[in-house]
């Protein structure tokens, strides 16, 4: 079988997250599925096309996989009509993952921007499940506006824990929002962590990553301790089609998660 052949996989649930964002829950119990936080799958809509979607969660020990999708393209828009009992094609998991063990015994700082929280959610859940492996756990999350905050209930649950520092901010808000207003980078200087002993995971739009990395470096976190997730056009996910090339990297297999210092030579070069 060709490696790009997807497997039909039933949808157990579809949940609306934001006005243009939804999560589909897939039943993968029939085949068994293991993945690492930060990896992605290719989801196929019969005859329409295929898109790379990071795994945003799982339930019941990997029996059910969650993918959070923003309806912005030719495949993701028609995916909005999917409902319980429908099927999508699935192949994966692909790519590199958040190196949880790098942060063992250290402060773990997770900075997410917008939909960038989705690929970080499994990392956060993993860290909170094995909370004793880390010193401080800090989650900084920024979105465009209050109604574009993802997984808000869950974020509130994380915030309710005494052993975790969670700060949420939005770029723009009206009078009815009582949280922080301002960019996610503003949360970095306010967070409590030991810079020299911190591992940071950052995911969001590339500009958000740039500014956040700078803020982390300003606080004294070294580039070797910062991990970022990159986005490029991924079509085949197996390193064959060439679309996701980023310098010498195929983001689909060498990424999407990179240690920042390894990207540093090309990170600020335009149009690489």
């Amino acid at each position: 079988m060709h490696p790009v052949v997807p497997q039909p996989t039933p949808i157990t649930r579809v949940t609306k997250e934001l006005s243009d964002t939804f999560s589909i829950h897939l039943d993968v119990s029939a085949r068994g599925f293991s993945y690492r936080p930060g990896q992605f799958n290719m989801l196929y809509l019969f005859g329409v096309g295929e898109v790379p979607i990071s795994i945003s969660g799982d339930r019941e020990q990997g029996q059910e996989l969650v993918h959070t999708i923003r309806a912005v393209g030719g495949v993701t828009r028609p995916m909005r009509t999917l409902k319980t009992g429908d099927f999508v094609g699935l192949r994966g998991p692909y790519g590199t993952y958040w190196p949880m063990e790098e942060a063992h015994g250290k402060d773990l700082l997770i900075a997410a921007g917008g939909l960038g929280l989705a690929p970080l959610r499994p990392a956060i859940v993993h860290a909170l499940t094995h909370r004793d492996r880390y010193r401080r756990v800090i989650v900084l999350y920024g979105a465009r506006s209050p109604d574009e905050l993802l997984f808000l209930k869950e974020v509130e649950r994380w915030r309710g824990r005494m052993d975790t520092e969670v700060a949420v901010t939005v770029d723009h808000a009206g009078d009815d929002w009582f949280g922080h207003v301002g960019v996610v980078t503003a949360l970095v200087p306010r967070a409590t962590f030991e810079a020299k002993d911190t591992v940071a995971f950052v995911c969001g739009p590339e500009v958000m990553i740039r500014f956040t990395v700078r803020e982390l470096e300003r606080r004294g976190v070294s580039r070797e301790a910062i991990w970022v997730s990159m986005e490029r056009s991924m079509k085949c996910a197996i390193g064959h089609c060439g679309h996701c090339q980023y310098g010498s990297h195929f983001v689909c297999k060498d990424g999407p998660v990179y240690r920042f210092d390894r990207l540093a030579p090309i990170f600020h070069v335009r149009e690489v």
């Binding site: 243009d20 923003r70 912005v72 921007g113 917008g114 939909l115 920024g142 979105a143 465009r144 574009e148 770029d171 723009h172 301002g182 960019v183 980078t185 503003a186 200087p189 969001g204 739009p205 500009v207 958000m208 500014f211």
Partner: peptide, 18 residues
């Protein structure tokens, strides 16, 4: 300067979708 930097990032409106 820090506030200027933040304003610039805010002005980029990085989470706006296509």
């Amino acid at each position: 300067y820090a506030r200027l930097e933040r304003s610039r990032l805010q002005g980029l409106d990085v989470y706006r979708t296509g």
